[in-house]
Amino acid sequence: MGRIDREQLKLYLVTDSTGMDEETFLRKTEAAIRGGATIVQIREKEKSTREYMELAGKVHEITARYKVPLIVDDRIDVAMAIGAEGVHLGQSDMPVSVARRIVGGKMIIGATTKTVQQAKEAYESGADYLGVGAIYPTTTKVKTVLTSVDTLRSICEAVPIPANAIGGLNKDNIQILKGVPIAGICVVSAIMKAEDPEKAAAELVAAFEELNH
């Protein structure tokens, strides 16, 4: 087994604290884990380093209680400072090979890839898993380039590390992924914007498991 178990990628929550106070944010994140989120990535584009560290530390206290890995988006310094389990890197972030040299062998490194070539490079550079997308247009404040389901399938077949689908996914639209050998799905709005994040997470797990039957 590598640094991450395929099962841990089943329901991958990417957080978004936009428009909510800290207490609400932490409550929603914990509710999602109770509902079935198997891994959490904290993603903050607007916070200062100190703010990011403080919030990530509080999220890590929650994830550690449930034995769920915490991944920090983009910021290796923040991940190392709070002892997070991993870091996730996009195509404009630090190259995976450089990150691997900095964090050593123990930390999980995930990479966002949109093409088979990018996927192979990430794998060869030391990535442990891939996030592939966006499958659908998203409402989050990140630049998205849509990825076809065929490309997603090709990426899954091209590399031995697990790949997750990301981008605008919810319980009602993930059926297009049926038969594609993904390890799991990454969601933001489907949980963070839900009235009941625990229920939303449970429904997403059920919908993902349906895909594999």
Rank of each mutant, 00 (worst) to 15 (best):
P162R: 05
I174Y: 04
V72G: 02
K143N: 13
L13I: 01
N170T: 07
L70F: 02
V78C: 04
E61K: 14
L169F: 03
I185Y: 07
Y52Q: 12
Q175H: 15
D196W: 02
T138C: 09
L9W: 02
A37D: 06
V159K: 01
S17T: 11
I39K: 02
R100V: 08
K106L: 09
P181C: 03
E7V: 12
A32W: 06
A207D: 09
L55R: 02
T113K: 05
T49L: 15
G35R: 06
I62E: 12
A56D: 00
S17M: 14
A99R: 03
G35T: 10
K114V: 01
K58Q: 13
A200I: 11
I185L: 07
A79F: 09
I155W: 00
V68H: 01
K193G: 14
A127T: 11
A84T: 05
V180S: 04
K58I: 03
S17H: 14
I71A: 10
V98A: 08
G36V: 03
K47D: 12
G167T: 03
L177P: 11
N173W: 08
M20R: 02
Y66I: 08
G86Q: 03
I109K: 12
E61I: 14
D150I: 08
G83R: 06
I185C: 12
V132W: 04
D21P: 05
V68T: 13
Y129R: 05
T147Q: 03
K193V: 11
K193N: 15
T63A: 07
D128S: 15
G83W: 04
